[in-house]
Computed example of a mutant assay.
Amino acid sequence: MIEIKNLKKVYSGEEKDVEALKGIDLKVEHGEIFGLIGPSGAGKSSFIRCLNLLEEPTAGQIIVDGQDLTALNTKELREARKELGMIFQNFNLLNSRTVADNVAFPLEIADANKEEINDKVSELLELVGLADKADSYPSQLSGGQQQRVGIARALANDPKVLLCDEATSSLDPETTHSILDLLRDINEKLGITIVLITHEMEVIKEICTKVAVLEAGKVVEVGDVIDIFTKPEKNVTKKFVQRIINANVPEELLSRVTVENPEHGRLIKICFVGDSASEPLVSDLVHNFQIDANILYGNIDKIQGIPFGTLIIELTGDLDQIESAIDCLHESDNVRIEVITDEESVSIHY
C-alpha cells in the first residue's frame, strides 16, 4: 500500500544543515493502523509532512498504491493528494465557516456539485457523531468535537490513507479514547489505511497494529505492537514501553540477597504473553524442581486484547535445580525470562 524508500530530509541552516530524516525505509500494508512514535526532535513531523509532500523530500521515494509521489508534477500531485486525508493536532478548522461548511471545503475545491456536497457532508457528520452540529461554528465546539470535524473533513474526498499528526495530543484522556475509538471504527468500516504519528505510547497500545520507533531521524525498531511491547530491543523503545508497563524492578528489591549473593538463589523476571499468562508456571516450578518461589512483584495488562504479565520471583533451594527450572522456563512458548544478577541488570531488559 505505502512503501517508503531511503527517505531523507535536510533543512538548510545559517550555520549548518539539519538532517531531520536519515534514510527511512518502511512499508505500510493496506488496512493497517500503523503508528510512528519517537521523542521530541526525532523527525516525526518531518516524516508526516514528507509523506504527503507538504515538505519536499531531499531524497527518496514515497510510493502509494504503486505511484511514486515524488515523481509527480504539480497537477498530478494535487490529484494524488486526494487519496491522502490528513488530520492535525490543532484541528486547523476555518473559524468563519460552520461545521458543515468546513467539511464541505475540500469538496468545493474539487468542484463537486451542491447536491453531492450536501449528501457527502451529511453522511460524514453522521459517521463522526456530529449530525446535530452542522450549523455550529468551531468556537462553539469542544476540542474533541473539533477534531471530529477535522476527521470528517479529511474523509471528504474518500481517501485511501488517513494521516494523523499528533491527532490526540491536545485532548484529555477520555476524549482521546473516544477519538481513537472513532478512528478504529473508520478503519474497520471504510477499510482506510491509517498512519498515526504520536509521542504517546498509550495511543500506540490502544489502536495500532504495527509500530515504528523513530530516533534522531532513523527508524530504530519496527514490528507488531504486541512484539514491540513484550520484547523491545532499543533503549528508546524500552523507555516508551515503561511509561505504560512498569518493567523496572521496584527499588525495595534492589538489596535482595539473591542479587548481591547469587550463590544463595536467583532473582528472575518472567514475562507472560497470551494464553501463558493464565498458566500455573510458578506452582509447576515448585512442584517439579523442589525449589521455593517467592513472588516479589507482579503486573498484568492487555495489549491489543492480548494478556501480558510480568512477575519478579526469588528462587531459592538447590542451585542445580534452580538452573534446571530456569532452562525449562526458557523453553516455554510465549514466556520470556531474565535472570537478575547485578545492579546493571535490575532495569528489566527484554
Rank of each mutant, 00 (worst) to 15 (best):
T175F: 12
S178Y: 13
S178V: 12
S178I: 14
S178E: 15
I179Q: 02
L180S: 07
L180E: 08
D181H: 10
D181I: 09
D181W: 00
L182R: 03
L182T: 09
L182Q: 06
L183F: 12
L183N: 09
D185W: 08
I186Q: 10
N187I: 13
N187H: 14
K189R: 14
G191E: 10
G191N: 10
I192A: 09
I192S: 07
I192Y: 00
T193V: 11
I194F: 02
I194P: 00
V195Y: 05
V195K: 02
I197D: 09
I197Q: 08
I197P: 04
T198M: 04
E200V: 11
E202S: 14
V203H: 08
V203S: 04
K205V: 03
I207L: 15
T209L: 07
K210L: 01
K210S: 12
K210F: 03
V211D: 08
V211P: 07
V213S: 00
V213D: 02
V213T: 00
L214D: 05
L214Q: 01
E215T: 02
A216M: 07
V219I: 15
V219W: 02
E221D: 03
E221Y: 02
V222Q: 11
V222F: 05
G223R: 09
G223A: 12
I228N: 01
T230I: 00
P232H: 04
V236I: 15
T237G: 01
K239H: 11
K239Y: 08
K239W: 01
F240P: 05
F240I: 00
F240R: 01
V241A: 06
R243C: 02
I245G: 06
I245E: 00
N246L: 11
N248C: 04
P250S: 09
E251I: 01
E251S: 00
E252H: 11
L253S: 00
S255N: 15
S255D: 15
V257P: 07
V259D: 00
E260W: 03
E260D: 05
P262H: 14
E263S: 15
H264T: 15
G265W: 08
R266N: 08
L267N: 05
K269D: 06
I270K: 09
F272V: 01
V273A: 12
G274C: 03
D275R: 14
A277R: 05
S278M: 07
P280L: 08
P280S: 09
L281E: 08
V282Q: 13
D284H: 13
D284M: 11
D284V: 04
D284P: 00
F289H: 10
F289C: 09
F289Y: 14
Q290T: 15
Q290V: 14
I291R: 10
I291C: 07
D292N: 11
D292Y: 11
N294T: 15
N294M: 13
L296G: 02
N299W: 05
I300S: 07
